[in-house]
Design a protein around this nucleic acid. Sequence first.
DNA 1: AATGAATGAGGCTTCATTCAT
DNA 2: AATGAATGAAGCCTCATTCAT
Lengths: 188, 188, 188, 188
Amino acid sequence: MMAESGYHHAQISRIARAAGVADGTVYLYFKNKEDILVSLLRQTIGQIVEKGREQVRSQETAEDKLRSLVSLYFRELGSDWKLAMVTQVHLRQVDANIRREIGNIMKPFYNALDDIVQQGVEEKLFRPSVNYRIARRMIFGTMDETVTAWVLSGQKYDLASLAEDVVDVLLHGLYDYPSHDLERSAQA
Amino acid sequence: MMAESGYHHAQISRIARAAGVADGTVYLYFKNKEDILVSLLRQTIGQIVEKGREQVRSQETAEDKLRSLVSLYFRELGSDWKLAMVTQVHLRQVDANIRREIGNIMKPFYNALDDIVQQGVEEKLFRPSVNYRIARRMIFGTMDETVTAWVLSGQKYDLASLAEDVVDVLLHGLYDYPSHDLERSAQA
Amino acid sequence: MMAESGYHHAQISRIARAAGVADGTVYLYFKNKEDILVSLLRQTIGQIVEKGREQVRSQETAEDKLRSLVSLYFRELGSDWKLAMVTQVHLRQVDANIRREIGNIMKPFYNALDDIVQQGVEEKLFRPSVNYRIARRMIFGTMDETVTAWVLSGQKYDLASLAEDVVDVLLHGLYDYPSHDLERSAQA
Amino acid sequence: MMAESGYHHAQISRIARAAGVADGTVYLYFKNKEDILVSLLRQTIGQIVEKGREQVRSQETAEDKLRSLVSLYFRELGSDWKLAMVTQVHLRQVDANIRREIGNIMKPFYNALDDIVQQGVEEKLFRPSVNYRIARRMIFGTMDETVTAWVLSGQKYDLASLAEDVVDVLLHGLYDYPSHDLERSAQA
DNA sequence: AATGAATGAGGCTTCATTCAT
DNA sequence: AATGAATGAAGCCTCATTCAT
């Protein structure tokens, strides 16, 4: 039996074609494949963090800041399918070395999330017992899963419009708190 | 031609060596690399779902069921680093066609999550307004991000022991609900 | 105007084809292109030096040793056109790093030449004023030029049969010494 | 696409930069890379042969003519490192077709060497039995090896100053002729 | 059933050459 | 005449897959 049909993700060729240039042209602007992906992510995350800082500054509460950041993230990726493909699909197809570098690039974004959580705790809006790292992973994991699902679905719906509901569930969790807790309070 | 050095494959060779068989032997049991990874995932998720069903059946509330499932997931992946590498790293390095297939495999797991959410809502433990799909993405996204972080960290800590805190934040969200809402209730 | 017709020296492909194997097969035995060429030269020169040592040991005078070594060199390369092509053509097409390595590989051969010259001087057969390095370069340069000319000619004649005449001119130089010097002696 | 880094060619770009012009400009004056190298060699060898003819004409004996030509060759290449790099390194990195052309270019130089040898024989200075072709290869091979060694050494010494010793060994060969032959004469 | 040497398609990258400015 | 960004053919190398043993 012959080989099924070869490879399916000619990366550089695909990226070049997506950019409307020849393969070699890519190397006028980037050192190598790693540089392409890392540069692209750095710039993307950098821009989102940058814009995020501004928008966040104009918000009072941690709640509004989170809403603002999630909304921005979904808007940015939701308006650029190719970019989303790169961050959600291509960037995952890289070796361990690059993943470490990706971790570094994401740090400012993670920090922004941590700051929001911390502020929320300080202003007594978020639970004081919350584990920052776990909270951050919930926030980012939920955003990431949402964007990936959107990308793999073929972008059949509007990503940005999900922000409100996503933030809602992140803030409230699954519990039907008020009644639940009031009941418990009542029992106490 | 005279031999001088060996040779090293990255993926199939590694998988074969891990299984203690020769490269070619793998193809007696699997159609191709995609089949290996997909079969592995199918079996893994299948087992977790299977075990999950039993454990879940022995739990009363949606809350306990969720706790049980997250705990199981972390325990299974946390005790098998190679498996976690496959699900969190190698399985992401595949093309869109396979990702669709992966989606199918994950469906029972997603369904289990959906069932739990639905039950929670029915027993008035979870908020009636919750968007099932978004809730499921929050749960799975958080679990996935947690496991990935653990894999990339080099498994420097015990994954299973995070289950409690993760479930806690999924259920309660970020809000400091009791005081927060009691205040609000008081204001009303 | 389009590119003239592409490249003309597909090296690895050519080497692989010459060896009757596929391109990838080469990499089962060699680390990379440099390793192929360097290994080949190392083995070739190594064998010649090895054989040379034996043959040289069975010769009394420096003159006979030189004759023996040149003869061996021409016989070895003259009987293997592909090998000669590699040493005289392909091995020159490499970057500075490899050339340094080539220098190291050739050292035993150069040393053998130096030893012969030194012995010749000691047994008062060769001129005491001879500069070893220059003598060695004359010997090797002449051999090299002879082999290269043979390779580029398309091996239209027998290389080995030139050894006698080449050694003769190396030993005697261009001068018609006896008459020349006898005249000079006479004049003195 | 946003620029970020420059780009570096190895050969044509290097040549162009060395000439102080842009890459494309080179193609206004030369047909292609082969044409550049061949033209450069043609001009270089042409000049050396030209100058050589003059200098040679002012010399009486074949011996002085050889000395003059070797000296000129070493002076020309020894005073222009880039040129020597081209003749000793870059020009060897070309395919068989070009090497034939290079052979044609070198012909006048080889002829000049042949003429000197022939004259030497005629004036009974050089041995009548000398094989012209082999003698020429010895002369050129020794010169070439000397220049190459100088180039690869990083030009750590003065090439021109080696001419005297090189010619000396070419003329006298390795034998300690006078004593050697006088002995032999005496024995006769 | 098992092996592993051999294969070759296709990935990344370089660089001689072109062409719009 | 000159430029240099863009091109794309072809180089090196990897690795999923095959097949003779």
